[in-house]
Design a protein around this nucleic acid. Sequence first.
DNA 1: CTGTAAAGTTAAGCATGCTTAACTAAAAGG
DNA 2: CCTTTTAGTTAAGCATGCTTAACTTTACAG
Lengths: 154, 154
Amino acid sequence: MTKSLQFNQSVRAWMDVFMQRSMSGWKLFAKSCGLSMPQFSILMQLHHKGAFSMSEVRERFEITAAAASQLVDKLVQNGFVLREEDPNDRRAKLLNLTDKGRDLVQRGAQERYHWIDGISARLSEADKAKVSVALGILTEAVQALEQERDVQKA
Amino acid sequence: MTKSLQFNQSVRAWMDVFMQRSMSGWKLFAKSCGLSMPQFSILMQLHHKGAFSMSEVRERFEITAAAASQLVDKLVQNGFVLREEDPNDRRAKLLNLTDKGRDLVQRGAQERYHWIDGISARLSEADKAKVSVALGILTEAVQALEQERDVQKA
DNA sequence: CTGTAAAGTTAAGCATGCTTAACTAAAAGG
DNA sequence: CCTTTTAGTTAAGCATGCTTAACTTTACAG
C-alpha cells in the first residue's frame, strides 16, 4: 500500500523532471536539422518501429490523411524517407528511412544522451547499478503493456 | 566501467520507450483543452518553477521577446495566467498561474499519470521498491545538475 | 539631467501544420 | 461486371508560432 504510493510519487517526480529537460532538447535538435517536431517524430517512429504506411501515420499522430501526406512529402523531398508502393496492395505506400534519415535520428539520440553522462558522473557505481536494474524493470513493464494494448486493438 | 555502460544503456532504453508514450499524451491533453504545445509548456514551467518574467520565457523557450509576448497574451486572455507589474522593476512583468491555470496543469498531470497505474499493476512490491529508490536517485542527480548549470549561467 | 540600455508590446509578414472537399486508383464484395 | 470501400493525393483556406522592425516606458550610469 505504502509502497505503491511511494512508487507513484517517485515515478511522477522523475517524469516531471525528465520531461522538462528532454522535450526542449528534442526540439532544439530538430530545429537545428531544419525539421519541425511533427516531421522529426515521424522519423523517430520509423526508426523505432520500422517501416509503415501512410494510414499508420494518420493513426499514430491522430491527424487526417491529407495532413499525413503533406508531412511525409517534406521528408521525402528532403531525402529522409522513402515512399514506395506496397507490393501486397498497390494502393498503399510503405515508408522507410533512408540512410540519411537513419543517420539523423541516431545523431539526435547521441546528443540527447549527452546529459546522461552528466548524471552518470555524479552517481556512485552502486547507485548506477540500482538504477540500471530499476529502469530495466520499468522498460520491460511498459513494453509488455504496449503489446497488450496492440493486441486488444487488433 | 561495465557498470557505466550498463547504466547508459538502461537509461537510453527507458528514455526511448518513455518519450514515445509521454509526448503524444501531452499533446492530446493540451489539444483537448484548446491549448497548443508551446502554450501548455509555459503553464507547466510556471507550475514547476513558480512565477517568472517575460524575459525568462524568452530564454527558456529560446524565442524572441515578441513571440513570448504573443504566446503569453493568449494564456492571459483565456484566464490561465496573470501578468502583473514587478514591484521591483516597473518595466518587468511577473507571470503567475491563476487557479484555473493551476487546475488545468494538475488535471493534465493526473491524466498522464494514469499509465503509471498500468505499470504499477504489473510489478511486484519488491520491484516497485527498487524502482522508487532508483528514480529518487536519478531525480536528485538531475536537479543537482540543473542547479549547477543555473549557477554557472549567473 | 541626459543618454543609453533593458523589458515589453504591437504590427506586418512568412512558414507550418492542420482541416475540409474533391479527386484518382486499386481492392473487395455482391 | 459493377458498386462500394479503402489508400492516398491535391488544393484552398485557416490558425498558430515565429521573426523583424518600430515603438513606449522604466532603469541605470556618467
